[in-house]
Design a protein around this nucleic acid. Structure first.
Lengths: 329, 329
DNA sequence: ATGAAAGCGCTAACAA
DNA sequence: TTGTTAGCGCTTTCAT
């Protein structure tokens, strides 16, 4: 093909010896056009390397072919994995992904949505920090919220409650009777769900849970919590997410406390690196690939609510209660 | 504001009591319009929450306001960091990012570029796997290649050569006389540059370098190389990137070989997790934030070539040659 | 089955 | 300084 990426539908029409309208039809509803004509059109399209302009098409159809994906921080591996699955599902559905990284700045969510509302067919919003409280900014545009429920809007929820219970039972079975739970950020849907699950199971399983709050859901946050976790008499830590768990692991290692012999660790999300540290992290795996695909589907069904469930992956960071039975120092 | 995201320029014009053309001017060249008119228009814009349609505007100006970012794998932290910096720089320059994750499939690069050439003002291509050999697919559209030089196209190169030399000298100063270099993928620009630098410095500094090739530039690739690296008599490993270095670290740890006492490790890229493992990785930091900003700038200057330089960050995975002076086993 | 014509929302010449 | 007009590339009636 000549691969003239500037060719328009009129060029194609001319080459095929038909009118532009016919080309349009041949492309969108091939059955509405005579076989011979269709072939001539297809040949011309190929010859010129013609690709219809989404902009021009969208102007008249009202469909742009774009989906806006709003994410707090693409360098957070949890979000990166989600974005990848969304991107692939979107492509399969003939959407292009418009990526917005808000840099964890909640006002950017609102700004971005205001600016984009007209040029996307829908939004997929990952773990919104504020947008769920200012949904009006989205207007009529379809939107799917991931890990946040919003009245009248579609959502896909990655539920970790039952897996968190699994984790607690796993630790109980290993002989742990007192564990530390590192809470996630206030106001986070996932954090609330997970904390509640831990509390509930704690009572049921007879494991005493010491909660630590106020730490950032990051590597540093995990490190900050190590001091307390190591001296409160618990023999295991469940962290809100893998980043924190990694922080705990690093902090413990630096203090010379062995994992899992002296202290067990459970993370959450099963981020890629969770399997790459020593010892590999026991964690809760979330069906993120599926989540992306579902989110894209829900764009078309704008009020549905889908729940997906995580499950425990046992690796080497958890083990039986060891020699150390009392607080260090 | 009424925040009617469906308002058009005509609605604004009506509300302001002027013609649509005047609104257009008031928005794009405010100085070309009477102050009083401008104020009325601005008020109307605010009142209606009017946001001009990029599609309609682009149709006539030929500028779409989109930049296509093509990345092999967004879950690779190195690319994630780059994409974030590109996204932020793009926003500052009033561009929206169209993200394409090729899933490491080189034919997707070409497909994506063909499909998007008309709807973006330019492409930023990160570490292309094939596109650099099929540049014609891009046509007239401006393109900036990151970590790849292409004739007649702009590029930003993250040079690691001098930092790699630094790394070797750093190890030499610690007493290492024989080290292993884990090579990157064949055909990668970065891999070639780094390998050449290591070879060159090897001769100059009197450090013997054993190269290992054929491993994937991943965590697993690093793990696979551990066996050989641990038994070839070297006391340090320089890996093509942090992922591999992480794999080496994990493999070494599992074998009970202590880092850095028995074996030193140097990575490359200074990916976020590099600082989060135990021991934190000595690595080569790349100015990725700057790279993103530069790449966006180069969209406007489509043949420039910019080079940015990495530098060694010494952490705890490197240390003086220890007791172990001969191969294990 | 195909052509003709109108129009999506906007900008840019040109007039006034 | 502002209004008028044409038209970007496409789809979609409505005729034919």
């Amino acid at each position: 093909m000549r691969n003239d990426s500037r060719a328009t539908i009129v060029d194609v029409a001319a080459l095929a010896g038909v009118h532009a309208g016919t080309v349009s039809r041949a492309l969108s509803r091939p059955d509405k056009v005579a076989p011979a004509t269709r072939e001539r059109v297809e040949a011309a399209v190929k010859e010129l390397g013609f690709v219809p302009s989404r902009a021009a098409r969208g102007l008249i159809t009202g469909k742009t072919g774009y989906v806006g994906v709003i994410v707090p921080d693409i360098t957070n591996p949890y979000f990166a994995v989600l974005v990848r699955s969304i991107e692939h599902a979107a492509r399969d559905a003939d959407f292009q992904v418009l990526l917005v990284d808000t840099g964890e700045r909640s006002d950017e969510e609102v700004r971005a949505v205001r600016g984009l509302a007209r040029e996307v067919d829908g939004f997929i919003v990952l773990s919104p920090r504020r947008l769920h409280r200012e949904v009006d900014a989205i207007g009529e545009t379809p939107a799917v919220f991931v890990n946040r429920q919003v009245r009248g809007r579609a959502s896909v929820l990655l539920r970790s409650a039952s897996a968190a219970e699994e984790a607690l039972r796993h630790l109980a079975a290993l002989g742990h009777t007192k564990i530390t739970y590192l809470r996630g950020p206030q106001g986070s849907w996932a954090a609330t769900e997970r904390r509640d699950a831990v509390r509930r199971t704690s009572r049921a399983s007879g494991v005493e849970v010491v909660e630590i709050a106020g730490c950032a859901p990051t590597f540093e946050g995990g490190q900050d919590a190590v001091e307390r976790a190591a001296t409160n008499g618990s023999s295991a830590v469940i962290a809100f997410n893998d980043q924190m768990a990694l922080g705990v692991l690093a902090g413990l290692t630096r203090r010379g406390i062995r994992v899992p012999e002296e202290m067990s660790i459970v993370g959450c999300d099963d981020v890629p690196v969770a399997a790459m540290v020593a010892p590999p992290l026991t964690t809760i795996r979330m069906p993120t690939d599926e989540a992306g695909a579902v989110a894209v589907e829900l764009l078309a069904d704008s009020t549905a609510k889908v729940e997906l469930f995580g499950s425990l992956v046992v690796r080497a960071s958890t083990g039986p209660v060891g020699a150390r039975s009392q607080p260090i120092r």
